[in-house]
Computed example of a mutant assay.
Amino acid sequence: GDVRNDGDVAAAVAAAVEHFGGIDVVVNNASAIDLSRTDAIDMKRYDLMQDINVRGTFLLSKLALPALRTSNNAHILTLSPPLNLDPKWAGMHLAYTMAKYGMSLTTLGLAEELKNDGVSVNSLWPCTLIDTAAIRNMPGGAQIVQAARGPEIMADAAHAVLTGANLSADSGASASNTGNFYTDEQVLRATGVSDFRPYSLGAPEEKLVPDIFL
């Protein structure tokens, strides 16, 4: 399916409800990336990021709401960063920052809108670069990801959030189960993980590339 196509997303939601009898979890993971500066960005790439990142997140969340409201443990989890308004992030790659922050604003707004509906809405973001196809396809990406962690760390952190792990431990995580902007390390530390070396692709911890927006 294409997250930019209303019919495709509606069909996916309907198929999930028909097959599983409902929806408990929505994960907004689809995202396009282009770190070009403003004078260099192609507007087709700008539109692609807005359509996939922001509109896609909003659309899937919107269409899944009727099913989520009938769940006893409903979650929307979006892979987007904390809303860090340090101007350097917008100044470095404005188009991409706008697209990712649009996803985060969806978390912020839906958490407030749905706070009485029993639907938890949170965001999750990695502390380090993650080895993904999107990064590998960027110029120099094959070399960059050697200093990244594998996607398993995000999977484990997402699982902890979605299964109600105790995230109010001494990790800085909120005791509330909605409206949070978690990092993978924050979540996993709260569940007792202290050694993150198994998640890396071989580079020492001190050589890992920090992710943006933090």
Rank of each mutant, 00 (worst) to 15 (best):
V3I: 14
R4T: 14
R4H: 02
N5Q: 13
D6S: 11
D8H: 13
A11E: 14
A11W: 10
A14V: 09
E18F: 03
H19S: 14
H19G: 05
V25G: 04
V27L: 11
D34H: 03
S36A: 14
R37C: 10
T38Q: 11
T38F: 15
D39F: 08
D39C: 09
I41E: 04
M43W: 12
K44N: 14
K44Y: 07
D51P: 04
D51M: 06
I52C: 07
I52P: 05
N53W: 04
V54G: 09
G56Q: 03
F58I: 04
L59H: 11
S61I: 07
L63V: 12
L65Y: 10
R69G: 09
R69D: 10
S71F: 01
S71W: 02
N72D: 15
A74S: 01
A74Q: 02
L77Y: 01
L77P: 04
L79M: 12
P82Q: 08
L83W: 06
D86V: 09
D86K: 07
W89H: 11
A90W: 11
M92Q: 13
L94V: 13
A99E: 10
A99I: 15
K100V: 10
L105C: 10
T106Y: 07
T107C: 10
E112D: 14
E112P: 04
E113D: 14
K115G: 03
N116H: 14
D117Q: 13
L124D: 03
L124S: 07
D131N: 05
A134S: 14
R136H: 06
G140A: 00
G141C: 05
I144Q: 11
I144T: 14
Q146K: 13
A148I: 00
P151E: 12
E152Q: 15
A155I: 13
D156I: 03
A160V: 07
T163I: 00
N166I: 00
D170V: 00
G172N: 04
N177F: 08
T178W: 01
N180E: 00
N180P: 00
N180W: 00
F181G: 06
F181P: 09
Y182G: 01
D184H: 02
V187M: 01
V187T: 00
L188S: 11
L188W: 05
A190E: 02
T191P: 01
T191K: 03
G192W: 06
P198Y: 04
Y199V: 00
G202E: 08
E205T: 13
E206P: 04
I212H: 06
I212S: 13
